[in-house]
Amino acid sequence: MRRIKFLLLALFMGISIPFLLLWGKEQKSISLEEVLSIGGLDDDVLYMWVGVTTDLKGNIYLTDSMDYSIKKFNGEGILIKKAGRKGQGPGEFLAIRLIKYFNGLLYVTDQNLRGIQVFDEDLNYQEHIPFNMQIWDLNIVSANKIFISTPFLANPEKIICVDFEGNTRVDMSDFDGKQDYWMNFRKFEIDDQGNFYFVFAFEDRIEKFNKSLKKIWSKSLLSRKKVRQKKAEVMFGPSQLPTEMVYKDIALDSSGRLFILGGHLSKNPSRDVYVLDEKGRHLLTFTLPEASHCIHIDNHNFLYSRAGQGVTLKKYRLKFI
């Protein structure tokens, strides 16, 4: 009898272990297949791109901080149009940063100019949305509804929603109670159900909130929690400045998976991308070939990242192994 039990157990383990191993191996890694590269060392296409977005036709839009421009590329990576120059007028920039596509329009921010400039798909200037605070991240969820993440010290709002005239529609200020300036630097994404996913720049914290702003989960991924800081003599604001970033960016794929770009505390700084499911479970980590400051995933799940310190944009097909 004991022998039969032992045989049955061995049989069970013999069958189940390979299954468990296979299941464990499921989506253990992602391989990146480069499908497009825009800009090289010997051309004048990109000088240092900072923001990237894509439209539904596969066109790619980049902001270039060196020549203060927005550049539109077709799906083959050919430069179709360039707009913008240095200045403070309509269609002009001083420190061009983020670019987001929504419903035929492009929303562009500038670190040194307040508000959001709106362009059409042909890069023609349309309008200016007033917003009197520094913008760290933004997401447009519907016509006339823009969510903005701001670290501004005097106004502790962390995420607010404005309409196209710049009027605050929903005040979501300070919903988790912290008012530390540096802790307010966070990138975010919004999924189809209206859930918010946040990653913090200077803290090992990833969080999900539902659309009523109730916290669903909070997660840490790294062993070192605190970033290095240095003393800085500044007239206003904090005297301790963080010199490292924990998380640099977040992107969502069409299956609702979160892709989080790690910063200086990651094993491969600015190259490790952590993939989490919608419940916050860490599925896997993969590494970009080169350091990037941001990641973007388009509607066909292609991933875009920086190479050559911003003189090149790489587009990758994600293959789950």
């Binding site: 060392l41 010997d42 004048d44 000088y47 240092m48 270039d64 060196m66 020549d67 203060y68 421009s69 120059r85 240095k86 050559g308 310190q309 911003g310 003189v311």
Partner: peptide, 14 residues
């Protein structure tokens, strides 16, 4: 080369 290119862009932009 990267550094040179970025400065070139800055000179063009300014």
């Amino acid at each position: 080369k990267i550094v040179e290119k970025q400065l070139k862009g800055l000179f063009i932009g300014n």
